[in-house]
């Protein structure tokens, strides 16, 4: 295991949780009802908390006085390694909730693997985060079932969300060089994730998904993103870039 791979992988985990957290954060004050507004912002805060743990670890590995803030606010689009799924726009509640379900079940499988991984810091962060992630899986997948197996309109919205987001899930299971170096078993991740998602889709009366039925985008893990990320980063990084080093 090289240190560079460990840094890249840690940044992949940090970036993915930060970017999805930033996306979900847009819902704050605009959730469909007060209780769900609080629920999704709780998830958001969990994700940003996880990203801080990963950024702090990456900064420590990089050394030379690197800080979590530098990593979050002073890297450009091409340096971000987040999964493409995380940067996709919020769309409606169906799309937001489905994106969360896809990612939370992925996190659950990945963090379970990290528990037994060689790096003790990543295992410790994974262990702490898994409790949060299990709740995210439960909360978001229940919403997929409610909307999928709800009214005609909610079913149609969920179908549209699946069509919109499905091309971005394949990337999760294509190992980046740093994942191969760290011996992340993407094949097991994929089959466990597919089993879990298939079960959710069955209960939600959605057609069974297939990873081979459509073109899958890749690139996020290596810094090639959709156009959506640039706008997101502009907003996320604006204050630090305009007033370097400013503190709240």
């Amino acid at each position: 295991m090289t240190n560079a791979s460990l840094i890249d992988f840690t940044l992949y985990l940090a970036d993915s949780t930060l970017i999805l957290g930033q996306r979900n954060g847009d819902w704050c004050g605009h959730g469909p009802v007060l209780e769900q507004d609080i629920a999704i912002t709780n998830v958001t805060l969990d994700l940003i908390g996880q990203s801080r743990s990963f950024y702090q670890y990456a900064a420590q590995l990089i050394g030379n006085g690197c800080t979590e803030d530098q990593l979050a606010y002073w890297r450009n689009e091409r340096e971000f390694k987040n999964a493409l799924l995380c940067e996709r726009p919020n769309g409606d509640w169906a799309q937001t909730i489905l994106r969360q379900t896809f990612f939370s079940f992925y996190q659950r499988e990945l963090f379970t693997q990290l528990l037994h991984g060689a790096d003790t810091t990543l295992s410790a962060i994974a262990e702490k985060s898994l409790k949060e992630v299990r709740y995210h899986c439960r909360w978001s997948s229940e919403w997929v079932c409610r909307l999928g197996d709800g009214t005609q309109e909610s079913h149609e919205r969920m179908l549209a969300a699946v069509e919109n987001l499905w091309p971005y899930v394949g990337e999760l299971f294509v190992a980046a060089p740093y994942e191969t170096a760290l011996q992340i078993d993407t094949a097991t991740l994929k089959s466990n994730w597919m089993d879990a998602i298939t079960a959710v889709f069955t209960e939600a009366t959605l057609p069974p998904p297939s990873l081979t039925s459509t073109f899958m985008h890749t690139g996020g893990k290596n810094g090639q993103h959709t156009e959506a990320l640039g706008y997101l980063l502009a907003e996320l990084q604006y204050v630090q870039r305009s007033y370097p080093g400013c503190e709240w």
């Binding site: 847009d26 819902w27 004050g29 605009h30 469909p32 009802v33 919020n90 409606d92 169906a94 937001t96």
Partner: peptide
């Protein structure tokens, strides 16, 4: 807001 205006109209 940039967020969608989805969800039930009068959930309360």
């Amino acid at each position: 807001s940039g967020a969608a205006k989805a969800g039930p109209a009068k959930p309360a």
